[in-house]
């Protein structure tokens, strides 16, 4: 108990001291990107690890959030502080529309529906020239300002993103230990038994899906305010797959999983971008992807339950570690 009581706040304090210790803008920007992706993967983790559903369209929700901010602030001159909640709300509403019919069906219908949706939205970003600026996107997004505070530097943005992330983490921590969190886990274990316990499984899955879309949209809005420029390229199918990978690598249904998964995938991507050309001179992006895949395969072979499950080796009882996601058959 004392370990947890000291270690966690210490780790958080250390993290928040990072911008003061590191003077590298590159590292800071990587940490901001990790933070933004973590927010997306946190929602996806609830959907996948608890409600047992997969979405291959979360890059689209991420993009919708980004474009909502870009369009509302540059075309309609909304105050930035209002554009941000709109960026979360719009994907949430769209998720409700897609999810309602598909989540009544079981199995992989949501995965298919979101796959199609993701591709459609990406095409809309590229082709909707009047509104989205086409392939070149939208520039000149203002900085986010809340009250008198304008987030115009990497350091400020780092704090904004990571404080948001920890607030969401606290919320999810409450959720998974609650009646609703147990019900979600029950759905992923036995939908029959869950229904017979009085759980409206279709409704809860829909709520988890909407929640995950809201978080992806929020991350997209923050992203737009951070880079102040938006184009379709970061929101393609590739990105959706990457989010799913982050969730799986981090460990489904684990507390630190989303953060670990996002950190590992982003760091690995950056590392490979640097390392691959050293090994194979003149190697392009396609080689990085091969190495990326290889490392992921190895990880899945040796740590199939994900990195977040390492916490179990530290003797956390099942009471304290709710939601392993994967039923522990070995005990």
């Amino acid at each position: 108990m004392w370990k947890k009581a000291i270690l966690r706040p210490a780790a958080v304090l250390l993290l928040f001291a990072v911008p003061l210790l590191i003077k590298s803008n590159y590292l800071l920007s990587i940490l901001i990107v990790i933070g933004l992706y973590t927010i997306i993967v946190q929602g996806l983790g609830i959907l996948m690890g608890y409600a047992g559903q997969v979405s291959f369209g979360h890059a689209a929700f991420f993009g919708l959030g980004g474009y909502t901010v870009a369009i509302l602030t540059t075309r309609f001159h909304w105050p930035t502080v209002l554009a941000l909640p709109a960026a979360a709300l719009l994907p949430g509403v769209i998720a409700a529309i897609i999810g309602r019919p598909t989540l009544k069906l079981r199995e992989l219908y949501l995965a298919l529906a979101t796959l199609g949706f993701g591709i459609l939205v990406h095409i809309a970003f590229t082709e909707g020239k009047e509104l989205t600026g086409g392939p070149s996107g939208i520039t000149g997004i203002p900085y986010l300002s809340i009250g008198g505070l304008t987030f115009d530097s990497d350091i400020k943005f780092f704090y904004l993103v990571w404080i948001t992330l920890f607030l969401i983490l606290a919320g999810i921590n409450n959720l998974v230990r609650s009646r609703v969190g147990r019900a979600l886990r029950a759905i992923s274990e036995s939908e029959h038994a869950a229904e017979n316990a009085g759980i409206d499984t279709a409704k809860l899955k829909l709520q988890a899906f909407i929640f995950s879309a809201l978080l992806a949209g929020l991350a997209g809005g923050l992203y737009a305010f951070y880079v102040t420029f938006i184009s379709p390229s970061p929101f393609g199918f590739h990105a959706s797959v990457q989010f799913v990978l982050m969730a799986v690598i981090g460990g489904l249904g684990t507390f630190w999983g989303p953060l670990l998964g996002a950190a590992v995938v982003v760091t690995l991507g950056e590392f490979l971008r640097w390392a691959v050309p050293l090994v194979i001179p003149g190697a392009g992006g396609e080689y990085q992807i091969i190495f990326f895949g290889l490392i992921l395969v190895l990880l899945m072979i040796f740590r199939p339950e994900g990195l977040g499950a390492l916490g179990k080796c530290l003797k956390l009882s099942p009471e304290k570690m709710p939601g392993t996601g994967i039923p522990s058959k070995d005990i």
């Binding site: 019900a183 029950a186 316990a197």
Partner: peptide, 15 residues
């Protein structure tokens, strides 16, 4: 719900 504890199974039953 085999991934849950004994107590959590009953708590879920009490949904």
């Amino acid at each position: 719900f085999s991934g849950m504890t004994v107590l959590e199974n009953v708590l879920t039953g009490a949904y």
